[in-house]
Design a protein around this nucleic acid. Structure first.
Lengths: 343, 343
DNA sequence: CTACGTTGCGCAAACGTTTGGGCCAAACGT
DNA sequence: ACGTTTGGCCCAAACGTTTGCGCAACGTAG
């Protein structure tokens, strides 16, 4: 059988269906529409059923360009991340993607590389593609003007991973996570400790460090300034920061606010001729899958990354569809392993 | 100043520009078009310059839905991966994304989870969004019917990461990589070795294993069948496979076809009370960033992931634009570290 | 038996862009 | 001076879908 009214690339269109069913294309459109507004006017049950049958049979797929042009909706949610090669972000993204799809949206991720100009360009790209809203995974702590732009343009958005100001967000309770790490090391008797604190512009590192430092201060062992060093969120950053910490008088334990950096830290400890766990305890953050399998397994604060993404998607779609939302904090848990044993 | 002819969401359209410049919208369209066909008919230099000026000033962004509807081109390339939380795939994707953008396309990634039904659904999603072509990162060795579907529908596509049959692809020369690993272990005097071989349906694991086994056979030490065990491509899979290998009479060295699995393998070695390097040598594959920083640094065959992605994007766009392409193999290199020392 | 809702569907106008065809005037050739 | 070319622009149709409006046909109530 050869079909009438195919589009340029040989795909059936609504006209194809309409012709086959002997109805008007508007009738076909309404029958196939899942929005409740159109559903109310969909036509008789038998007609709707017949149209669905034909659509399935010829493999009709609505052209999203035509539909989006008319409706100004793309059913696309943009996701802006600072990095894709980081399993933390990738896992959050998987959570977003999965949940968005369940809610009839499709996620579209772009990489801002944690650099102001690139993230702006990436965001513009998303907006040019007419996404219905954006999940921001790379917010900056201090007055992030990208967020103001978004708000000014009335683009629905939700922060995740990192938060900023009073903008709606779904993040891990990083302060509480820092407290968990500190309580663990205090219980082991470490009083001479240091923090590899991550990038200052990221709320994650900042709050984890703050929770940790506050707990130590409250316990009577305030951290001197030189024991808190910033770092990149990757193995290299953790290695360098820890090496500098070890150069003077080495602390007996290090809290590293990110697992990759913690792996780098372990590398630096080993390189300095010390043993991880026995000589220098290391605590990481996020509990990524490799943490437990390292030759010296890494003690780490676990954050619910996948759930964080899923919840962020839900909140964003709530905003897109006009429902009110409130910020959420998800609770972290501590996983103790060999890197803080053998003292 | 308030602009005429804004679209529903307050964005300027071509009509806005046309009104401001005092020309017809078709003139504005041609002036702003970068295609050579339209360029030839673009109008006077002064008019074109003026239109560009106005467009910049009011922040015009062409509506891709309207344009795509008319042209049947989306300037989107789909990317199908088996996993996003794997730094190997994520890095390949970054390479694709970067190069595609340089060539005026935008990459759109979806996750097929290495499962036939899900990857099919993910691909359909991409096609429904009218991508201009697809990079397939999760091809199956043995008659992958998804690829036949693509070919039958005349969708331009290129394989990367894994290859399959004679379909155009950009991959690492995995057979050569397996040879590199084998030669290294042979040089160290290991004759009693094993392979953690990955999933049988992936060309990567299959060819790495084949190159390794062929080299050992040629050296007079053919591997018995029970010394080649399949595994998932993650830490858990590597751990389990290695544990089973260690349960009988342990080999003196293990070639694990994927770094994550290799980390799991190291975990299994440690858990068995043996020392990585001293008791059991481990060689991984891909040389991911953490490999060098592990408490026992991992010897690994390095594959040019980023370049692989970039090249795959180039080939795909060549195909989309009607230029002929040929499959490519990129050369791996070996990085020797502590996990194969201390014998 | 009239009046009036309901149900089921067709009509046509958008949405913003691209592009083949044409028209007018200026520049050119003889 | 008179065709012919060409540069510069406008016109209008089309891409495939959605949706407000309108109109029959039918059922129900008064």
């Amino acid at each position: 059988m050869t079909l009438p009214h195919l589009d340029g690339s040989g795909r059936p269109t609504l006209r194809t269906i309409a012709a086959l069913a002997g109805v008007h294309v508007s009738t076909a459109s309404r029958a196939l529409s899942k929005s409740e507004a159109a559903g109310a006017r969909a036509g008789s049950r038998t007609t709707v059923a017949r149209i669905h049958e034909i659509a399935d049979e010829i493999g009709f797929e609505r052209n999203p360009y035509a539909a989006g042009l008319r409706t100004r909706r793309s059913q696309l949610v943009g996701v802006l991340v600072p990095r894709l090669t980081d399993v933390v972000l990738a896992t959050i993204y998987e959570g977003i993607d999965e949940r968005a799809r369940e809610l009839t949206y499709q996620a579209f991720v772009v990489n801002g590389r944690d650099r102001p100009d690139e993230r702006r360009a990436a965001l513009e790209m998303l907006l040019a593609r007419r996404v219905d809203g954006v999940v921001i995974g790379d917010a900056r702590r201090d007055g992030d003007d990208l967020l103001d732009t978004l708000a000014a343009r009335d683009v629905p958005f939700v922060l995740t991973n990192r938060r900023s100001g009073e903008h709606p967000s779904v993040t891990c309770d990083d302060h509480a996570g820092g407290v968990l790490a500190a309580e663990h090391l205090l219980a082991l008797g470490h009083t001479d400790v240091a923090v590899v604190a991550g990038e200052p512009y990221a709320s994650t590192g900042h709050e984890r460090t703050a929770g940790f430092a506050a707990t130590y201060a409250a316990a009577g062992h305030p951290l001197p300034a030189h024991r808190i060093v910033p770092s990149a969120f990757d193995v290299g950053g953790g290695h360098r920061a820890t090496a500098s910490l070890l150069a003077g008088d080495p602390p007996s334990a290090v809290f590293v606010v990110n697992d990759f950096a913690a792996i780098g830290a372990m590398g630096a400890v080993t390189a300095a001729g010390l043993r991880v766990g026995a000589d220098v305890a290391v605590v990481g953050y996020n509990d990524i899958p490799v943490a437990a399998e390292l030759p010296v397994a890494l003690t780490s604060v676990s954050s619910p990354m996948r759930r964080m993404g899923a919840r962020a998607a839900e909140l964003l779609i709530d905003r897109i569809e006009g429902r009110p939302v409130a910020a959420e904090l998800l609770a972290p848990t501590l996983h103790v392993r060999a890197s803080t044993a053998d003292r």
